[in-house]
Amino acid sequence: MTDELPDSQGLQTVHQLRALTVDLDLLAAAFARRNRLHPTDLRALIALLDAARSGTPATPGLLGRELRLNSAGTTAVVDRLERLGHVRRTRDPDDRRRVLLEVTEQAMTLGQSFFGPLIADAVALVNDLSPAELATVQGFLTSMRALVARHHTAGPPGP
């Protein structure tokens, strides 16, 4: 570790990334509030949608790991989302002992109505990048996620 401050461009970029994160968190909080969701409920829906997109079976165990919740906390989230009609529990057709979680069409429509315009604009912005610019952005985002995960795993620094 060095005592030197990051260069001004690097620090400015970090501040822009932080500002974007805050803006997106505020937008997500507004959506959650408007739809009587806890912020964790929204994170759960996103995790379930990501699992579906990747073809990964979404189980309560997977959701708990993604949200870093114990089984009681995960059950509470799933119960809330099920009561609101956003998630349904089904039995795995290959293993009837296993419960699968699925985001309902109602929840997808609700999310699309709120976030759809932003997503469409973001996709258009990305589509305007050159292949080299896109590779740079994707590389940066991948590296940042790995960096954040590493710091999260390490925990706070000692005394």
Score class of each variant (00 low, 15 high):
Val137Asp: 05
Leu141Arg: 07
Phe140Cys: 04
Glu66Asn: 03
Pro60Arg: 02
Leu134Gln: 06
Pro93Ala: 11
Phe114Trp: 12
Asn70Asp: 15
Leu67Cys: 00
Phe114Val: 07
Ala76Thr: 09
Arg88Ile: 12
Arg80Asp: 13
Arg97Cys: 06
Gly73Gln: 14
Ser71Glu: 15
Ser143Gln: 10
Arg83Pro: 05
Glu66Gly: 03
Arg80Pro: 11
Leu62Met: 11
Gly85Thr: 01
Ala124Asp: 12
Ser143Ala: 14
Glu133Leu: 10
Thr104Glu: 04
Thr104Val: 04
Arg65Ser: 10
Pro93Thr: 13
Glu105Val: 09
Val87Ala: 01
Leu110Phe: 08
Ser113Val: 02
Leu110Cys: 12
Gln138Ile: 06
Asn127Phe: 07
Ser130Gln: 12
Thr74Glu: 12
Leu110Trp: 04
Leu101Glu: 02
Gly139Leu: 01
Arg65Leu: 09
Val77Glu: 02
Leu129Pro: 08
Leu110Pro: 00
Ser71Asn: 11
Gly139Lys: 03
Arg80Phe: 03
Gly85Glu: 03
Phe115Val: 10
Ser113Arg: 15
Ala76Val: 01
Thr136Trp: 00
Glu66Gln: 13
Asp95Thr: 13
Arg88His: 09
Leu84Lys: 11
Ser130Asn: 03
Arg98Asp: 02
Gly64Pro: 02
Ser130Lys: 07
Gln138Glu: 11
Asp92Trp: 10
Leu141Asp: 06
Arg96Val: 14
Val99Gln: 15
Leu129Arg: 11
Val99Pro: 04
Ala122Met: 06
Ala122Leu: 12
Ala76Leu: 10
Ala120Gln: 14
Asp94Arg: 14
Gly111Ser: 01
Pro117Trp: 01
Leu62His: 09
Glu102Ala: 12
Gly139Glu: 04
Asn70Thr: 02
Leu62Gln: 03
Leu101Met: 04
Ile119Ser: 07
Asp92Cys: 14
Phe140Thr: 11
Leu81Glu: 04
Asp128Met: 14
Asn127Leu: 12
Ser113Thr: 11
Gly64Thr: 05
Arg80Gly: 08
Arg65Thr: 12
Arg96Trp: 12
Val137Asn: 01
Thr104Pro: 05
Ala107Cys: 07
Leu134Ile: 01
Glu66Cys: 06
Leu84Ile: 04
Arg96Ser: 15
Asp92Met: 10
Thr109His: 13
Gly139Asn: 08
Met108Glu: 15
Arg91Leu: 14
Phe140Val: 09
Gly116Ser: 04
Thr90Cys: 11
Arg83His: 13
Phe114Asp: 08
Met108Asp: 07
Leu118Tyr: 15
Leu67Val: 01
Asp94Pro: 00
Leu125Lys: 04
Asp128Pro: 03
Arg91Gly: 14
Val126Leu: 14
Thr90Trp: 05
Val103Met: 05
Val77Trp: 04
Glu66Val: 03
Thr109Met: 10
Leu63Arg: 02
Gln138Gly: 08
Gly64Trp: 03
Gly116Ile: 07
Leu67Tyr: 08
Glu133Met: 09
Gly111Trp: 01
Ala135Met: 06
Val123Thr: 05
Thr90Val: 15
Glu102Pro: 00
Gln112Asp: 13
Val126Cys: 06
Arg88Leu: 10
Leu125Cys: 03
Asp92Gly: 10
Arg68Ala: 14
Pro117Cys: 02
Phe114Gln: 01
Leu141Cys: 09
Pro60Cys: 07
Ala72Pro: 01
Leu63Cys: 04
Pro93Cys: 07
Arg88Gly: 00
Val99Ile: 14
